[in-house]
């Protein structure tokens, strides 16, 4: 059970949050211009790596805000938490 530092509310128990999958996948601005393969890439393809992964999380039972998290999937260490629209940490 993680302890997550919501950027708007502070540290809260994981059960207040909802995981929202991989972060930094932008919805294409012009979907109609894309081929089936390109659209499928956006729609279906997600990374599942061992190591630091960038994820979207939502403080569903709190402020309802979405934010990003860099998490090491091998040991569940939360490396960084940053707001939507912010760049992922480089390290």
């Amino acid at each position: 059970m993680f302890l997550i530092n919501c950027p708007y509310c502070g540290e809260r128990d994981q059960q207040e949050f909802k995981a929202g999958g991989e972060a930094h996948i932008e919805r294409p601005k012009q979907p109609t211009e894309l081929s089936d393969d390109e659209w499928a890439e956006y729609l279906f393809m997600r990374k599942n790596i061992k190591g630091v992964q960038f994820e979207r999380w939502n403080h569903a039972h709190g402020c309802r805000k979405w934010f990003n998290m860099a998490r090491d999937t091998s040991n569940d260490e939360i490396k960084a938490i940053y707001k939507m629209g912010e760049k992922p940490p480089t390290q």
Binding site: K18, R27, R56, N58, A60, R64, W66, M84, G85
Partner: peptide
């Protein structure tokens, strides 16, 4: 509601 908030906050802020 969750889905609409998601799009509003992340895709169409």
């Amino acid at each position: 509601l969750g889905k609409l908030e998601d799009y509003l906050q992340t895709e169409w802020p």
